[in-house]
Nucleic acid binder design. Structure first.
Lengths: 228, 228
DNA sequence: CGTCAGGGAATTGCATGCAATCGCTGTGCC
DNA sequence: GGCACAGCGATTGCATGCAATTCCCTGACG
């Protein structure tokens, strides 16, 4: 393992959290991998103290599991818990869509539609990378449109924990067009201020994403069963 | 400030987290109060290292705010954010009620009804303390009946952060009977497996609790306005 | 041959010490 | 009289060292 330069923007601990979280979300560190303090300290050229604090934070985020006197490991997410997170995400998306339909300002609605319409081009081009960026932007707008800071936090948390299981969503053929059409249904309902329709559309949308990701996960795991 | 004996069941850090969190939730430590590491270390007769780790955890829980090189203070919750938390709680309760109606096992349904029916006596007696315990039990059963571990976590988090603002709910005259009747509507719907009715009943119930607590908070603050 | 007890290495948990940063106060200048 | 800057005290941030716990390996006994 090569020694890494730590980008110290802010405190050392924050930088460590970002670095390790990134390694986990990007699957460079796989679930179950042990994280011993000395190695991490050596690797990032810091002492064990900030490493420990970073591990505490990562544990609070749910990205790692820490047991007293037993060290830390990348969180093992059971199939059951993974399903629970996707289900929770579906519910949160539905709530945000409903509240967005009720509460978005005129400016927010206008921008949502603009971003969404602009993305139609990406579908035709089949630009997966760019569409993925738009997809994140689109959902963030729905989360923020709900005008509820706490729900925004719950969403952010759940999303970050789902991070390791979200890749390759748009690799499935035809997924881009389907996603855009589902977004379109949400946008239409939100613009009309139709809360019930927005909620229903959001629920249908995320449900499909969940299924796709879930299948991917099962494939990648090659049938192994894990527990929390 | 008197030195406290720390009940070390588990690790020192966990005990510290529990002790400090309890002080915050029980309002012995008021929002905005500074938490300097040396004082806490002295007070609980430990070194600054475990205190720091405890503060990191409390910060992750949202109970305190920590700024680099500036120390920690008990979280200042703005009225807006407080409202957001109550609204989020309403949504979570609604989800749990709906899922409980769909998913509770026969045993869970039976126990829910038994606990609920037994509490009728407490209403007649006006036993606020005991009713409060039943209330927590009742809601926990709904949260667990949803059979979704992640949503359970989101609920636990939100509840703990709402802790400081939840006291004295049942001091309002007639609140016990009203609460029980609202519970009754939820129980009836859940037992029937009527998801929509359960969700609606839960939404109505928590909404009222929120209002009651919110009023209490405003009174206690004597009109002072805070920010996150 | 399997099981259990004991000892040692490795790792975590906590204490302590030093360096760095922040905020406050006092002084000088405009 | 007010504002800016420098120095100082206090507090946080990080490094290091020691104590405590766990885990694993070895060996003896059933």
């Amino acid at each position: 393992m090569v020694t890494k330069e730590l980008i110290r923007s802010g405190t050392t601990v924050d930088a460590l959290v970002r670095a390790i979280a990134d390694d986990i979300v990007s699957a460079r560190l796989q679930p179950g991998a042990r994280l011993d303090e000395s190695s991490l300290a050596l690797r990032y050229a810091v002492s064990r103290t900030p490493v420990r604090e970073a591990l505490v934070q990562l544990s609070a985020m749910g990205l790692i599991d820490r047991r007293p006197n037993r060290g830390a490991m990348v969180a093992q997410v059971s199939d059951e818990y993974l399903h629970a997170m996707f289900e929770a995400m579906t519910e949160l998306e539905a709530i945000c869509a409903r509240l967005s339909a009720q509460r978005m300002t005129t400016a927010e609605r206008r921008e949502l539609e603009a971003v969404h319409q602009a993305a139609m081009r990406l579908v035709h081009l089949g630009a997966e990378e760019e569409y993925s960026a738009y997809n994140i932007d689109f959902h963030n707008r729905l989360y923020e449109g709900a005008h509820n800071a706490h729900i925004l936090e719950l969403v952010a948390q759940t999303r970050s924990r789902l991070g390791p299981f979200r890749r390759a969503q748009f690799r499935i053929p035809g997924r881009l067009a389907k996603s855009w059409q589902e977004h379109d249904a949400i946008v239409t309902a939100v613009l009309r201020g139709d809360a019930a329709a927005a909620e229903a559309a959001a629920r249908a949308h995320v449900g499909i994403v969940s299924d796709a990701s879930s299948e991917f996960v099962h494939g990648a795991r090659e049938g192994s069963r894990n527990q929390v």
